[in-house]
Amino acid sequence: MAPPHDSDRVKRAKQFIEAIPYSRALGMQVEEIGDGRAVISMPYSEQLVGDPRTGVLHGGVVSALMDTCGGGAVVCHPRSGAPTATIDLRIDYMRPARPGERLTAEAICYHVTRSVAFVRATAWDADKDRPVAAVTGAFTFEMSNSEEGGQ
């Protein structure tokens, strides 16, 4: 079990992400967050369809979920001391997400320097074994005060 202050931190991170206007507009829900890893999901919505002839969600929807999830993974990194912003994000679309299915993304902040956090993320629909998209990204990063103190 995580110590109490950690679960507070997780709760705060969850509240923070779910209160972001754009994440709310897309209905994002934080499933798991902590230790430089975040899992966020969102429902399918006809409002977000990118091609009315197929009913497939627009790529921009998947990037929004990935970007939010990546940012979430960065701010919950144990050494993070400040909010973050995306520097660059590359998304590879492997297949269209199936209409009607919930979308889930998992992001891992796998390395941080004093000013940059590096992130990888994947997204899937109901079929977790066949990813819909993959992301690599760089985010701004600031160490928490205790880290900067050089312990």
């Binding site: 972001i20 206007p21 754009y22 921009g60 929807v61 929004a64 970007d67 939010t68």
Partner: peptide
């Protein structure tokens, strides 16, 4: 639009909104 905001403190557009706009 207010719903495009990603950081209410600054405030700033959400990176996902910007990406969606560019891709469109």
């Amino acid at each position: 639009q207010e719903k495009l905001i990603g950081n209410p403190m600054l405030p700033a557009l959400h990176g996902g909104a910007t990406a969606g706009f560019l891709e469109t």
